[in-house]
Design a binder for these strands. Sequence first.
DNA 1: ACAGCCATTTACAACGTTGAAGCAACGTTG
DNA 2: CAACGTTGCTTCAACGTTGTAAATGGCTGT
Lengths: 341, 341
Amino acid sequence: MGASLRDVARLAGVSVKTVSNVVNGYAHVSPATRAKVEHALSQLDYRPNLSARNLRQGRTGVIALALPELDAPYFAELSRFIIDAAAEVGWLVIIEQTGGSLDRERQVLDGVRRHRVDGLILSPIAIGADELAARTDDTALVLLGERIHGGPADHVAVDNVRAARDVTEHLIGLGRRRIAALGAQDNSISGTAPPRLAGYRESLAAHALPETVAKVDRYRRAEGAAAMAALLEARPDAVFCFNDLLALGAIRTILAAGLRIPEDVAVAGFDDIEDGRFSTPTLTTVAPDKAQLAGIAVDLLKQRIEGRTDRPPREVHATYRLMTRESTLGGRGGGAAGDLA
Amino acid sequence: MGASLRDVARLAGVSVKTVSNVVNGYAHVSPATRAKVEHALSQLDYRPNLSARNLRQGRTGVIALALPELDAPYFAELSRFIIDAAAEVGWLVIIEQTGGSLDRERQVLDGVRRHRVDGLILSPIAIGADELAARTDDTALVLLGERIHGGPADHVAVDNVRAARDVTEHLIGLGRRRIAALGAQDNSISGTAPPRLAGYRESLAAHALPETVAKVDRYRRAEGAAAMAALLEARPDAVFCFNDLLALGAIRTILAAGLRIPEDVAVAGFDDIEDGRFSTPTLTTVAPDKAQLAGIAVDLLKQRIEGRTDRPPREVHATYRLMTRESTLGGRGGGAAGDLA
DNA sequence: ACAGCCATTTACAACGTTGAAGCAACGTTG
DNA sequence: CAACGTTGCTTCAACGTTGTAAATGGCTGT
C-alpha cells in the first residue's frame, strides 16, 4: 500500500516526526533537511492517512454536505459551488442524501455514519428547532437555505419572505388579480414553504387580493404538474410556484391544457435553475446568488471549526435577483429586475 | 466525547478485547459475560470510532467520485445513485469536480488531493489510455461512462455505439432523411462523442444517407442552442443530439425559429435526464439504467478493493432503453421501445 | 493421574499520526 | 564566560481498535 511517514523517514534519514513537520509546514526545519525530506516524499508519493491523522487529532479536512437529493437541480448547482468553495480552503466534501426524511436528518446530525468530519452543512427539511437544540453531537454545523426559528446553529439563506413578496408584487404589477400559490406543504415544520407562503400572503393582503393555495408533498416536476391541473379549475391568471421544478411541471400542464403563457396564465418560480433559462417559455424566477450562499456557508463553518464553539449563532442573508423572463413578460422577456439583498 | 471500548470494559469489569469481541459478534463469549458487556455498552451509548477501526484495518470506508460537473443533470442523477449504492456497502463518497480538464483528471488520478481513499470512480473526459496505464497510484479505479480503448481499468457504460445506432434507426424509421448529429468534439480523445458519432455514421451509411455533423465545446444547453442555430441552415428534418442538454438547447432554438417539433424537425437526445420528461415537447432519448450503472460501478470497485489487484480489467455494459416521446413522435409520444442491453 | 483439548478470557502489539518533552548546538546577553 | 533563548531535531506516548499469542480452568479419554 501507500508509503507511511516511517518509510519516508527511513529514506530521508531523519526521524518520523521531522517528516511530519515538513508535511505540516512546521517552520523550524532547515532548508537542507526540508529538501531531503521533500525529495523522499515525492519519491515515495507519500499521502497522509486520514484515519490515523483523524484518530490522533480530530481534524480530517473533510466536511459533509447533507441535502435532500442531489438530483434536484437546485441542490446540484448549489453543491457544485459548495465543493468549490470548500476546495478553496482545502476541504473535501462528502455528500449525504437525506431524502428530506426526519430519520435521515437525525442520523446525519448524530454523526455522518459514524465517521468523523470537521463540519456539517445541512439543508434541513423535516427537523425542528427543539430537536436541533437538543443535539448531543458537537460537530460544527451550518444550516443552509432554511430558517429554523431561534435555531442553535449558524444559518445562511436568502430572505425568502421578501423574495416571495417581490415575485408577487411583480405579478400584481403586470395586472394579474387571481394569483395562485403552488407549493405549500403540510408536513414541513421548517421547510422553505412557510416563509414563501408568508411573503405571498403579505403582498396579496396589501392589495386586498384573494389567495389560492395548492399544496404538494414534494418539490418535483410531477407534483407541480399534478397540482397545476387541480389549480386550473380556479382559473388563475398567474401562479407563483415555490420552486422552479414545480413551475416547470405547472408549465407543462398549462400548455397541455391549451392555455397560453403568459397571456392566459403567468408563471413564476424560485431558484433559477438552468432549466428555466432554456425552457419554453423561459421562466421568471428568484435567482439566489448560489456562489455567495456557498461561500458564506463555508466561511461560517470555518469560523465555527477554528473559533470557539460558544459564540452565539449567526444568521446571514445572501443576495438574490428577480429574473423576469417570458413566463411572465412574454416575448419581451429576459432581464433582471435588479440586485436585491 | 463518545465512550471508547476501554470505558465500556472498565464499567463491565472485563478486558477491552472482550468488549471488542462482543461488539463484533465473536462466537465464544459466555452468555453471562455477553449480557454484562451489552448492558455496559448500551448504558454508555458506545459507538465504534471508525477512524480507529479503519486505521487498524487499513481501510477508510471512503471512496471518491470524480466527474466533470455536478450540476450537469446527468451527473447529478448518476451521483445520487452512486452515493446510494456506496451507502449500501457502507462507504461514504467524496465528490471531486474535474470540469473535464486534463489537469484536474490527472490530479485526481494521482490521489484525491493527497488524501487516501479506498477507491475512485472516475468519469473521464480528457485523459487517454496511455496516461492512464502509466499511473503509479494503486488506488482501486473504475471508469464510468467512458470507453478508453484497452484501458487498464475496470469500466462500466452503456454500449454507446449501439445506442446511437438505435436512435438513428428510430429517426430513419420515421421517414427522416436529412438527419444531423449535434455534439461532436474536437478536443476529446476519449469522450462519449466518438462512439455516439460512430453509431450515427454506421446507421446513415447503412441507409446511404448523408451526414451533417455539428461540433460543440461543451455539453450544455447554450452550446446546443448555438450549434442548432448554425445547423438550421442545412435544413435538417431530424437532429440527434449527443446528450439531453444539447437537445433542450436545440429545441429552444428550433421553436424560436418558428419551426415545429417534430413535424419540421424531430429531436432526439441521450441520457434521459428528468428535464426531458417534462419539457415541451417531451424529449425522445436514450435512457441508461442509472441505478444499474451505479450498482455495477460500486460492485466492480468493491471487487477491486477486496480482491487482488492483478486481475485483468473488466468491461461491463449496462442496459438502456430508447424512450420515444413527443420530440420525435408528436402527440402520440410517450413510451419505450423496449429494453436493450 | 495426566496429557490433551476446548471454551473463555486476557495481555500485548501494531495500524499512522502528532503533541509534549527533551536534547544538543549555536548565538546573544549581562 | 556563565546563563539563557532559539533552532533543529529526536524520542516517547497516545488516539481506539483488532489480530495474535498466550494464560486459565474445566472436561475428556486413557
